[in-house]
Design a protein around this nucleic acid. Structure first.
Lengths: 196, 196
DNA sequence: CCTGAAAAATTACGTGA
DNA sequence: TCACGTAATTTTTCAGG
């Protein structure tokens, strides 16, 4: 494995602006061959930097309920629970969790059913207060602009360099600075699984 | 032109979950031939329902500053100005505008430069109050779930049916219920352009 | 990471419902 | 207008170095 370089970021930018851009076009832009571009994209996907290829839809053209922004403050220690409950709600598109335990999410819901739905889905004892606002517009600007790449070893916390390794355990991708951290992590993971 | 049907929505769902899914696979799923799927996707793009093919990135892996959620309340009548200023800020990823003129946006910024940047970029007389929160997590759930299709004529406001027409003016796509609305709109658009 | 060949996917186009 | 089949073209993947 290697750290990401400027070429990877350029590939990401090109894919963000057009996720179906042919590899030979990308290859020309970054002075690589198409197979190499393919390899890099695979690696970016393995690393988890690319979560998925997708389409950006104009949902206002799909009469899909109204778009609302919900702002709520979870009780200390209950943020995870509330967040999980929110994820279960059909129509939720974006969820933001702040460092202070505030959760803001955007969803497309049936207008008359918003409050009952929230009351029903979310444990009210875990939420201090909440506020629902009707949205008139929402836009997404997906251009990545940063340059650096920062990965921390999931075992020891050191930064992951070119000697690092990755592993996929239970659907999640983990990164390690070295093979011993990786094997130690995998061992602990297995023990944990057996205990469950 | 035709209204969207359930097949189109199924195609959209498949593309959302994988934007590079081969058309023959989609074709199998919806019982059409690959060329027909291609035609439908082109039409969805022309209509503006598909804004773009793109990739969903895990930005936390790109050391790209910290992610913040900014919540601000614009002075009445200044929402458009403030919103336009926000769009100019590098690192802004999501912008939400509520019916009451509140603007919430998520951005990835350099930690020490947030307040000065905002003060500098946004006309402070147009903003009543604002609040910046550090984000620990943000997730996007792009599944479209609605069924209906709702388009309003950009000239008269009536709903657009199968007899409708579209036009692309200055990079924007407009929809019309009939050809007379379309030509009237185009006429006005040209006059406006000449005046500028 | 490259080249060159094979495989696969996409698009173009003519035809029919 | 919408969909399809076939063929041509483009894109992606695979081997080997």
């Amino acid at each position: 494995m290697r750290e990401l370089d400027e070429t990877d970021l350029e590939i990401l930018r090109l894919l963000v602006s057009d996720g179906r851009r042919p590899y030979n076009e990308i290859a020309d832009a970054v002075n690589l061959s198409p197979p190499t571009v393919s390899d890099r994209i695979d690696r970016l996907a393995d690393l988890g930097v690319i979560r998925r290829f997708t389409v950006d839809l104009d949902r206002s053209l799909l009469a899909d309920g109204v778009s609302v922004l919900v702002d709520l403050r979870a009780e200390p220690g209950r943020v995870g629970d509330v967040r999980a409950a929110i994820e279960e709600i059909e129509g939720v598109e974006h969820v933001f969790v702040t460092a202070e335990g505030r959760i803001v999410f955007q969803a497309r819901l049936q207008e008359n059913a918003i409050e009952p739905l929230l009351d029903e889905t979310i444990d009210t004892t875990a939420v201090r207060e909440y506020d629902v606002s009707l949205l008139v517009d929402s836009t997404w600007y997906p251009q990545p602009r940063g340059v650096e790449f920062a990965l921390e070893c999931d075992e020891c916390g050191n930064s992951v360099t070119s000697e690092g390794e990755s592993a996929r355990l239970g659907g999640e991708i983990y990164h390690f600075c070295c093979s011993s951290c990786k094997s130690q992590f995998e061992e602990q993971y297995e023990e944990l699984q057996e205990a469950v």
